[in-house]
Nucleic acid binder design. Structure first.
Lengths: 197, 197
DNA sequence: ACCTGAACACCGTTCAAGT
DNA sequence: ACCTGAACACCGTTCAAGT
């Protein structure tokens, strides 16, 4: 990568971060190139699609989210881990307005530049969900795709100015549907062999 | 209203119904005028905003939804009434792709042509919610705005091809968060005086 | 009263021409 | 290798000119 190309790439990314913060995921690509003082073709050379640009913008946050899931896997109880990761995932979905719609499309389109990232996040959530389910702490009739969908739904709610103020409350309500009662272990009769005899 | 105007109005509406069904609520207005064989200005004369057009397109369904709420108010038990109206409302939100986002914006904007319709629907839902809450059959920490938001969220989920197949399932999950346990009356000790002594 | 379509200011995307 | 911007095909919205 030539030095001038590298510089354009970096500057484009910095400007894109600002513009997408202001205008959302469907921001004008023309505007980004313009503000970066770069030809429109240069933007398309570095980021052939909108998804490719957003993938780079989101990568760091997505990695954090995946890493967080790994940490919670061992540091917290299954229900707390799932609950706080869920909260974190919804917060991520708020990073840029309109990003959830792109992610919803990307998860079903292997050709999207965002596909891999979305699958990774969904997998991270699935692992937390499975652990909670194994302990009877999460609804059994739910899979990773459902969890991903609910994160998306809450992300969308947060994107709507009329609903955003209630988003924490709505998150609590939906979380309560995912997490089953405390189900404090070994109380319903049949032990679950948390420590083998 | 002159005869030719009336005819344009009606034809425009019929064409709009088709185009919005195909392309969603953000369909091209130009395309609608074109397919209707009418000048672009004619469309704007009859429907000064996109919301005005959709308001007419949705009015019948919205009225049905409000009426249905009234019927359920007396025909069903509070929890069943709320559950089945909720289902109906989500189905409505599916009528045209992308309509929920417009409604979310409209409910916060008194200037929108869709504002009144949205408020009416929200009120209808609020009444069903309050009745269920009075009987302890719905979560107490929920108001009509929250219910409206949840309907919107499910509508959005249904708009995403990747989530649409699971929409009935997700609806059940969210509905279970709104409806509290059966709470079969008079079981928790304090009666609620359903029939005055 | 009502209709028309050009005009304006925007898009996304591509690609020949330049350095 | 990389950059540029004109070109093309679209938008939404307005409004002078027509009937």
């Amino acid at each position: 990568m030539r030095a001038d190309a590298r510089q354009n790439y970096d500057h484009l990314l910095a400007v894109a971060r600002d513009v997408v913060t202001e205008q959302g995921a469907d921001a004008s690509l023309r505007d980004i190139a313009r503000r970066a003082g770069v030809g429109l073709g240069t933007l398309y050379r570095h980021f052939p699609t909108r998804e490719a640009l957003l993938e780079v913008l989101l990568r760091a946050s997505l990695d954090e989210l995946t890493q967080k899931a790994g940490e919670l896997q061992t540091s917290s109880s299954p229900d707390e881990a799932l609950a706080s990761w869920f909260r974190e995932a919804v917060a991520f979905a708020h990073r840029y307005r309109g990003v959830v719609a792109l992610m919803a499309a990307a998860i079903a389109d292997p050709g999207s530049a965002l596909h891999a990232s979305c699958v990774t996040v969904r997998s991270a959530g699935t692992r937390l969900l499975l652990r909670a389910q194994a302990e009877g702490m999460a609804r059994a009739d739910l899979d990773g795709a459902d969890l991903f969908a609910l994160i998306g739904a809450l992300g969308w709610l947060g994107d709507q100015p009329s609903f955003a103020p209630r988003i924490d409350h709505l998150l609590g309500i939906i979380a309560s549907a995912v997490l089953t009662k405390p189900a404090s272990s070994d109380v319903k009769g049949e032990r679950r062999r948390r420590i083998p005899p």
